[in-house]
Lab assay of single mutants.
Amino acid sequence: KELVSALYDYQEKSPREVTMKKGDILTLLNSTNKDWWKVEVNGRQGFVPAAYVKKL
């Protein structure tokens, strides 16, 4: 599985998104959309802005 690192804090703005803190390591589930990537963090799945994470 592919991992990404959070470059910035992000506070979810809808139920489809997830909150992350800078430095968090997230499991990348889907990166086909260039703007929003689906990740899993702390057992929750949702979307984060692609520009806020980088692949490890």
Rank of each mutant, 00 (worst) to 15 (best):
K1R: 14
K1H: 14
K1E: 11
K1V: 14
E2A: 11
E2P: 11
E2V: 14
E2M: 13
E2F: 12
L3T: 09
L3R: 09
L3N: 06
L3I: 10
L3H: 09
V4G: 14
V4S: 05
V4R: 04
V4L: 12
V4N: 02
S5K: 15
S5M: 15
A6S: 05
A6I: 02
A6T: 03
A6Y: 01
Y8S: 09
Y8Q: 12
Y8H: 11
Y8T: 09
D9E: 05
D9L: 02
D9V: 02
D9Y: 05
Y10A: 00
Y10L: 02
Y10E: 00
Y10K: 01
Y10N: 01
Y10S: 00
Q11T: 14
Q11W: 13
E12R: 14
E12D: 05
E12G: 15
E12M: 13
K13D: 06
K13M: 12
K13N: 10
K13S: 11
S14D: 11
S14Y: 07
S14K: 07
P15H: 11
P15C: 11
P15W: 12
P15F: 10
P15G: 10
P15N: 11
P15Q: 11
R16H: 14
R16A: 13
R16T: 13
R16C: 15
R16E: 13
E17W: 03
E17K: 04
E17Y: 06
V18M: 10
V18D: 00
T19A: 07
T19C: 07
T19S: 15
T19N: 08
M20G: 00
M20A: 02
M20C: 07
K21Q: 10
K22S: 08
K22M: 09
K22G: 05
K22P: 03
K22L: 06
G23V: 01
G23S: 04
G23C: 07
G23K: 03
G23Y: 06
G23E: 03
G23H: 06
D24Y: 04
D24M: 11
D24K: 02
I25L: 10
I25G: 02
I25V: 12
I25D: 02
L26S: 03
L26M: 14
T27K: 12
T27M: 13
T27P: 13
T27A: 10
T27V: 15
T27C: 13
T27G: 06
T27R: 11
L28C: 07
L28I: 07
L28N: 01
L28F: 03
L28S: 01
L28D: 00
L29H: 06
L29T: 04
L29W: 05
L29K: 04
N30M: 08
N30F: 07
N30A: 09
S31L: 05
S31N: 10
S31C: 13
S31T: 12
S31K: 09
S31A: 13
S31I: 08
T32N: 12
T32P: 04
T32H: 11
N33T: 07
N33K: 07
K34L: 10
K34W: 07
D35T: 14
D35A: 10
D35Y: 15
W36S: 02
W36Q: 03
W36V: 03
W37S: 03
W37K: 01
W37E: 01
W37V: 07
W37G: 00
W37T: 03
K38Y: 15
K38W: 15
K38N: 07
K38I: 14
K38T: 08
K38V: 14
K38H: 13
V39A: 01
V39G: 00
E40F: 05
E40V: 06
E40M: 09
E40K: 05
V41M: 14
V41L: 15
N42P: 05
N42G: 12
N42Y: 08
N42V: 05
G43Q: 06
G43L: 05
R44M: 08
R44P: 00
R44I: 09
Q45F: 08
Q45S: 12
Q45M: 11
G46F: 07
G46Y: 04
G46I: 03
F47M: 09
F47A: 02
F47K: 02
F47L: 09
F47Q: 03
F47W: 15
F47V: 07
V48K: 00
P49I: 03
A50S: 13
A50K: 06
A51Y: 10
A51M: 12
A51C: 14
A51R: 13
A51E: 11
A51Q: 12
Y52I: 07
Y52A: 13
V53E: 01
V53K: 00
K54V: 15
K54E: 14
K55W: 09
K55G: 07
K55N: 08
K55T: 10
K55A: 10
K55F: 11
K55C: 11
L56Y: 11
L56H: 10
L56P: 07
L56R: 05
L56V: 13
L56M: 11
L56F: 11
